[in-house]
Write a protein that binds this DNA or RNA. Sequence first.
DNA 1: ATTAGCACTCGAAAGTAGAGAGTGCTAACA
DNA 2: TGTTAGCACTCTCTACTTTCGAGTGCTAAT
Lengths: 341, 341
Amino acid sequence: MLTERQLLILETIIDDFIHTAHPIGSRAISTKESINLSAATVRNVMADLEELDLLEKTHSSSGRIPSEKGYRYYVDHVISPTIKEREINIIKNIIQDNIIEFEHIVQLSAEVLSQLTNYTTIILGPNEVDATLKQIQLITLSSQTAVAILVTSTGHVEHKSIPIPKGIDVSDFEKMVNILNDRLVGVPIVNLAHTLKTEVYELMKKHIKEYKLMYEYIKSVIRYDEQAKLYVGGQSNILIQPEFKDVDKIYEFFTMLEDEAEIIKLLANQHDGLKVTIGNENEIEAIKNFTLITSTYKLGMNQLGTIALLGPTRMEYRKVITLLKSLSNEMTDLLYLTLNK
Amino acid sequence: MLTERQLLILETIIDDFIHTAHPIGSRAISTKESINLSAATVRNVMADLEELDLLEKTHSSSGRIPSEKGYRYYVDHVISPTIKEREINIIKNIIQDNIIEFEHIVQLSAEVLSQLTNYTTIILGPNEVDATLKQIQLITLSSQTAVAILVTSTGHVEHKSIPIPKGIDVSDFEKMVNILNDRLVGVPIVNLAHTLKTEVYELMKKHIKEYKLMYEYIKSVIRYDEQAKLYVGGQSNILIQPEFKDVDKIYEFFTMLEDEAEIIKLLANQHDGLKVTIGNENEIEAIKNFTLITSTYKLGMNQLGTIALLGPTRMEYRKVITLLKSLSNEMTDLLYLTLNK
DNA sequence: ATTAGCACTCGAAAGTAGAGAGTGCTAACA
DNA sequence: TGTTAGCACTCTCTACTTTCGAGTGCTAAT
């Protein structure tokens, strides 16, 4: 357990470093209003904190910077969320003024969040595992092309244009749509293929001429795109941070962001609530120099998605955590309001 | 008009510079197999080409680099598209193996193009000005929320989730959908609002209880999102280019890419066919250091979209132009095949 | 326990020197 | 007359050195 003095100095150093990105010396701390100690005394405390692995030096005679453990301590013990009403209101207003389209809200939130924080925002869109099929439609555009549209109970719309194989009679299409709507509506998205095989196939045999061909066709239609919607906002913000002087680092960062599969994996596994992962605590190699803060937003009992902020370990934790918490609450409320009443 | 020798040397210098990004000296040119001249002679020719503003020096005793005018000359006079079958086949195969969803094809093409060229690809999706409404649907998710789905004749699907205002009777919804499908199908997308007002409004008066409320509601539904689909691929590729040593430049570039409105403006105004815009020929300040190559792809008579490549003025023009031409042809063919037969 | 003083360390910035690539010009050559 | 070899000159790039200052740890005094 740290003494009060140690805690005060640790906090002051981290706060300072978060804003300057330069190592903090003992003199700079001792001149602070809140601290009535000489530089020498501060040096002693700093040495203690270094002994505890909460601070580091970049070289033998440099000032101190926080270690990852230091940040962790700071996040766990020091931060008392000071709510910045102004910024939260910005988000509230923007969201409420734009109740138009669900996915639009998510995107917008990402942008606003990124602007307010100057970090990169990643939003993993609604996870549809619990959704059921609300309606399915096949619309023929020409004798050779059709558009398939699937609507889920959560209001998500999936569509594909697919060429109609030769041999399938257009008149069979309507029959088919009726059968599908009769049998598949209400079925969980993830079970569609299975239900098609067990329940619908026999029916098709009776009513559809080229039922084998049609079956293969429908199978490809309902193959639900597992791929979650990913939205990344404010990528360029990361370039403002002074730790990105190096083009190699920038390249690494952007390449990482382009690997959607990896990011989805990263975000999909987050548990409920807010989580801060600092530096090497991250499992993915490419972001071991970053801090990732994730927060989930929900609809009723079903987890829907994840909002994340990605920035240097030197992050404005206080501000960011407050904002993120408030945003995911706001979105949860809003989605609940929009979709569930 | 340039002499044959001048042309040869200009071409050789540009070719070289495109790959090395370093100023080219006279000796380097004279040792080339294709050139049987001494360095001194080459120097004389180079001085002539500089006089013509086709080459530049970075400082008084440096080698030469192409000027923007030089690139322009190179693009207009020198390039004889040497088709790289291998790369074109890569694109062909990828496109043909994935005839699933129209927008998917566009995205995929952007990715492949970016990988093959190492530049940033921007694709401006289908411009739907000539499309007509194929079908409209309103699906109620709950007593308070509905999803509206619009399908166009080109197979484009637009959807929105919209809260149902209090006062609208759910039973009126079906009537409404019937009226809409009866009267709006076949109407050009851009005229929907007008037709709704002139033709549908009167009908609504007769059949719908809260027709005023419903009218406002439907109006918001059919407000077609003009916003074209923009897809940017391979952003990080630009970082490979040696001219991007400078973080400021990188920042400028990415900020520009994030300004979608600006980019859409840039690409939407392109005429048919392939167009190369070098450096200061670009109207937008932020890309005056870049070359933009655009190519349109079409469906029948209607222009559909624009594919663009953005890279340093030192660009592999030969390769890029060939690829882009072939890709837009390929996409034109494919879309024609998919949507129009 | 706290602080002032001091010698020491290290990195960042500025200055210096030399090497190398390239040019333009002149004079010789085919 | 067009081409080439030779040479002095220019400018950048790199490596090395020097200097400066911020910061530390230790010791001794308060």
